[in-house]
Amino acid sequence: MKVLVVGASGATGSKLVEQLLSDEHQVKAIVRSPEKLPESWKTNDDLQIITASLLDLSDIEMSEIVKDCHAVASCLGHNLTFKGLYGKPRRLVTDATKRLCDAIKSNNLKSATKFVLMNTTGNRNRDLNELISFAQKCVIGLLRLLLPPHVDNEKAADYLRTQIGQNNNAVEWVAVRPDGLINEDHVTDYEIHQSPTRSAIFNAGKVSRINVAHFMASLIIDDTLWRQWKGQMPVIYSKSELA
C-alpha cells in the first residue's frame, strides 16, 4: 500500500510515517525542510520525500502526487508561534484538505481513496447531537474569535462532512479527534469513542501522539476498522489518562 502523508515532519506526522514504514508500506511525504528529517528516512527506499510547500503545488502536480496513493493522511497544523497562529495561511488545514480531495477526484480512479484528517476534540461533530455545556460553548466561541487555527480545524472537518459527504465515489474519509496531545515513546492501550466522553475544555483527557499515529495507520491498513469509522469523527484517548 502507498500512502501520502502531509505534515510528515510534525510531531504526530513523523510518528505516522514511522508506523507505516515499520508495517512495510510505501510512503510519500511532503515536507518543506527535508534537512530536518532523520537520516534513516533519507536512505529508506520505501519513503519518497517531496520537498515542497503543499499549497504552492499546482493542481497538476498535486494530482500526479496522489494518483498512485491508496490513502492520504493529513497531520497538518499551525505552529504555536505568533506567526503560526495569526499569520498566513490561516486556512492551511482546510485549504490543504480541499485541494488534496480535488486532486484525488481529478484522477477518476476506479476505487475510492481513503482520507484521514487529524482534527481535535474541541471541534464538535455536527452530524451528531453532541451536547456540550453552556460554559464550553462560550469558551469555544472565544476560541473562534481569538485563535484562527481552531476555525481552520472546524472548517476542514466541515468540508469533509458536507462537501465530500458519506457517498462520494472518489474519497472516503475519517476525521480523528485526539484530546490533549502528549509525547510518549511507545504505543500504549487507547480507546476510541464516537464522541467525547469528557469536556475538551474543562476536563480534558490526554493521548500520546504515537497512539494517534497508530490509530491513523490502523484505519488506513485495516479495512474492517475503516468500515467501522468511515464518514465519522472518532475521539481517541489513552487508557491510562481516562481515570
Rank of each mutant, 00 (worst) to 15 (best):
residue 154 E to D: 14
residue 154 E to L: 15
residue 154 E to G: 11
residue 154 E to T: 15
residue 157 A to L: 12
residue 161 R to S: 03
residue 163 Q to Y: 12
residue 163 Q to N: 15
residue 164 I to L: 10
residue 164 I to K: 08
residue 164 I to C: 09
residue 166 Q to C: 10
residue 166 Q to L: 15
residue 167 N to F: 12
residue 170 A to V: 03
residue 171 V to R: 05
residue 172 E to P: 01
residue 173 W to F: 08
residue 173 W to V: 02
residue 174 V to F: 01
residue 174 V to S: 00
residue 177 R to N: 08
residue 177 R to F: 02
residue 178 P to H: 05
residue 179 D to N: 15
residue 180 G to V: 12
residue 180 G to R: 14
residue 181 L to C: 07
residue 181 L to M: 14
residue 182 I to A: 08
residue 184 E to Q: 13
residue 185 D to C: 08
residue 186 H to F: 13
residue 187 V to F: 09
residue 188 T to W: 00
residue 189 D to T: 12
residue 190 Y to V: 02
residue 192 I to A: 09
residue 193 H to E: 10
residue 193 H to L: 11
residue 195 S to T: 15
residue 197 T to L: 13
residue 199 S to E: 03
residue 201 I to F: 09
residue 203 N to V: 01
residue 203 N to W: 01
residue 204 A to W: 06
residue 204 A to L: 03
residue 205 G to M: 05
residue 206 K to T: 00
residue 206 K to N: 07
residue 207 V to K: 10
residue 207 V to G: 07
residue 210 I to K: 14
residue 212 V to L: 02
residue 214 H to F: 06
residue 214 H to I: 01
residue 214 H to T: 04
residue 214 H to N: 14
residue 215 F to H: 05
residue 216 M to S: 11
residue 218 S to T: 11
residue 218 S to D: 14
residue 219 L to A: 01
residue 220 I to M: 05
residue 221 I to T: 06
residue 223 D to M: 10
residue 223 D to C: 08
residue 224 T to F: 01
residue 225 L to P: 02
residue 225 L to I: 04
residue 226 W to E: 02
residue 227 R to P: 01
residue 227 R to T: 04
residue 228 Q to M: 06
residue 230 K to Q: 11
residue 231 G to F: 06
residue 232 Q to V: 01
residue 232 Q to P: 02
residue 235 V to E: 03
residue 235 V to K: 05
residue 235 V to Q: 04
